[in-house]
């Protein structure tokens, strides 16, 4: 019970709070609802409310090679980049939290940089350096970029899970003669596994949605979904984009449910 809610003098404030919450809820959800509805539109333009309903945009989506290719590219991109980021990030978080590493806070801060530095700067920098290496327009170039962008999320998530966990468990195992790898595999990993999986999911979603680095580094032959959507929005403005957005939304929704289940597994931690 809220300490404020118990007091009757606060009634107008409580009403204001409720009203603002509803307002925020509407702000957050209405765009998603609009996209879902428009994806079933029968009109050739992005028009709301739609004059009629149809499945033509979904049909167009699934019959257009450009969209299907981009979906394939996105999968080819998000699978390796999220796995690489998860492995590298988990290893780094483990070393930083459990190991005695000189300058650990500094290294941690550096690993967070890819989220802090504006995407446009990272994108321009990678594009510039890739030119000399012939990596622009290649899957490799995209995977490298996405792995770096995903790294901070993994490091932060896993590090915070490791911090909560009792290091003495590992110490005890080590004292009892367990080799380090066995300690990690038998004690540490099972305890942080939900966090690791959760960060893998986050990395997958982020990689799927990432636009700016992809925009600079991709090409017509190697083009992930987000870039195809951008190019559709710039050039076509028809409801196909709403259809693909709804598909993505469904995908994100499922992943979010999976993640909430994982988080529930280690008691809901939000911060």
């Amino acid at each position: 019970m809220s300490p404020i809610a118990s007091n009757d003098g606060m009634r107008p404030w409580r009403l204001l709070r409720a009203a603002l919450c509803v307002f925020v809820a509407v702000c957050l959800l209405s765009p998603l609802v609009v996209v879902l509805i428009i994806s079933f539109s029968s009109a050739p333009f992005l028009q709301f409310p739609p004059p009629g309903l149809s499945l033509r945009w979904y049909m167009l989506l699934f019959s257009t090679p450009a969209w299907m290719n981009s979906l394939l590219v996105s999968v080819e991109l998000l699978v390796p980049s999220s796995i690489l980021a998860t492995i590298m990030g988990t290893a780094a978080a483990y070393a930083l939290v459990r190991g005695r590493v000189p300058g650990a806070p500094f290294i941690m801060a550096c690993l967070m940089l890819p989220i802090v530095v504006p995407g446009m700067i990272t994108a321009a920098a990678l594009f510039g350096v890739y030119r000399g290496l012939g990596l622009n327009g290649t899957l490799t170039g995209l995977i490298i970029g996405h792995t770096v962008l995903n790294l901070p999320y993994v490091v932060a998530t896993v590090a915070s899970a490791l911090r909560v966990q009792d290091a003495r468990l590992e110490l005890a195992a080590a004292t009892l003669g367990a080799p380090p790898w066995a300690t990690f595999r038998r004690i540490t990993l099972p305890l942080v596994l939900p966090a690791v999986l959760s960060s893998l999911l986050i990395a997958m979603i982020l990689s799927f949605d990432e636009l700016i680095v992809s925009l600079f580094v991709s090409s017509a032959r190697v083009r992930p979904v987000a870039v195809q959507m951008w190019s559709n929005l710039m050039g076509d403005f028809d409801p196909t984009i709403a259809a693909i957005a709804s598909v993505c939304f469904l995908f994100a929704f499922l992943v979010l449910l999976a993640d909430l289940a994982l988080r529930a597994g280690r008691s809901l931690r939000l911060t």
Binding site: M88, A91, L111, L113, P114, L126, G128
Partner: peptide
């Protein structure tokens, strides 16, 4: 004083340096 686990940092920091700090510095 420094344990071997420091090597676990290598992949992440290497990637960060080559594919992020380097390019941004270049820009």
């Amino acid at each position: 004083p420094i344990d071997r686990r420091i090597w676990l940092l290598l992949p992440a920091t290497l990637l960060l340096t080559v594919a992020f700090l380097g390019p941004v510095g270049w820009l």
